[in-house]
Amino acid sequence: MSGDKGADGPRRSRQAPLLVAPGEDLGDSGEFEAGHGVLSINGRLRALKQGKMNKRGNIVSIEPRRTAFMPRPSDLVIGYIEGCTSNIWFVDIGAPFNAILPMSLGPAKAEFGGIRKVLDIGDAIICRVQEVEENHSSVVTMKGMGLRAIRSGSVEEIDPHLLGRLIGRGGNNLRQLKEDTECRLIAADNGRVWLDGDLSGIIQARNSLNDLLKQAKIEEYGGVV
């Protein structure tokens, strides 16, 4: 809006962020390369999403206002067990497709017929995306540091593109929130956030999350939520 400059230098262009809508022409593709949300068509760059346009180096990209979570290898995700066979769990990870968790990557071995004793339907888990196939089905693993079943606390959901806002630069916001609420807080890449601690701490943390979402909405829609 105004041309105020951030005190911390030209981190990104702090002039009025240029908002674009799908289909908008973003200039000649000779000078710039197409980044996220931009496509080069017949030598011109075109916006594919609504959001803020960013130019960094020679890459033009769009910081979208909304995105669906699409899993990528090594993403940390919070999932819910949705079903199982004798040696595979099916996990809802908030993506278009379920992920599978084979017994070999699970938290423990189960005897034949005892898979639901290890992880039951409706259980929540913290896991990592091991691989994503061409057709978007994915495999998750629970082998690794901190990957485990969640048995207490609460899981909240936020839009994945607001994670950056929640975490803050260098993780500052998240650290502050943990200190203020004395909660354990894990923000997974699929937008699910695990809060664990005293009930009052969980409530406080959830209120902060909701404030963040409300703030983001107000900025998106110019004050009318």
Partner: peptide, 18 residues
């Protein structure tokens, strides 16, 4: 799908009248 965690959390809240 009803997450078990959600039911447990709602029960915790209920105990405190919240």
């Amino acid at each position: 799908l009803v997450p078990k965690l959600l039911r447990a959390h709602l029960a915790d809240l209920a105990k405190e009248g919240k």
